[in-house]
Design a binder for these strands. Structure first.
Lengths: 124, 124
DNA sequence: TTTAATGCAAATACTTTGCAGGAAA
DNA sequence: TTTCCTGCAAAGTATTTGCATTAAA
């Protein structure tokens, strides 16, 4: 069985609290605000472990910053407003199947995909 | 009409030569290899202008580095080997339609999308 | 004691900015 | 001259790593 240390557990519960996805820097700020004396390095290292153990997923914001979220829930993608940041979760089963097919066609293995939509929401 | 300076033109032709997408750092290296004395700053600034003028598109590599490519050509996506970097261009008309539909459904405007597949190619 | 976890500081890598010199109009 | 372009150096941001200390087993 997997071992899981305190920092990793803290990060998991913070990610649960956040509900969606958050960057390492944001998670760090949230924990510090809660009075936790955790260091930034530890946050990065714990996220890396969680990533290796496939407990969290990573994707990139438009500015290149890494965003982490818990896996396990139905895999979905996001429609993000590039002005105010509003995020809508979207379903993408058809995309999933398409990605699989393309990978197979080109003899690629272990294929993951990045599908994110960015635009302006109705308010912006 | 849009003005376009020498650096911007150099970058456009380099991007044409590359055929696909390339990072600012890569474009800089390519130009230097050709004996061009261009500076990295200028590469970044020219790319930013081309981006503002919607001459180029930007997407993110898995490690967060920005990749630029010319717009206008048939819009397609890529299947990238995360080990050796081999890139296969893939067609994605179904994805295009899906993205459009999702955007409309949520009243989003000016929606662009990022769809990239990363995996291991047959050689790796 | 032996191993794993932590934090600080330093190092990386990409990108942006301030500023002064140079080219172009 | 006046405006735009350029590059160097410095600053900024996210992330990683070396190392010594501490906590845990």
């Amino acid at each position: 069985m997997r071992t899981m240390n305190k920092s990793q557990i803290k990060l998991i519960s913070t990610l649960e609290r956040v509900g969606g996805f958050a960057s390492a820097q944001e998670l760090y700020q949230l924990l510090r605000r809660d009075g936790d004396g955790i260091g930034l390095t530890t946050v990065y290292r714990a996220l890396q472990s969680l990533l290796d153990d496939k407990i969290v997923d990573v994707l990139r914001r438009e500015d290149g910053e890494a965003l982490y979220r818990l896996c396990g829930e139905a895999h979905h993608h996001h429609l993000v407003c590039r002005s105010c940041g509003t995020t809508v979760e979207i379903e993408g089963s058809s995309v999933e199947r398409w990605a699989e097919a393309v990978a197979k066609e080109h003899y690629f293995r272990e294929v993951g995909h990045t599908v994110e939509l960015f635009g302006l929401c109705s308010k912006c």
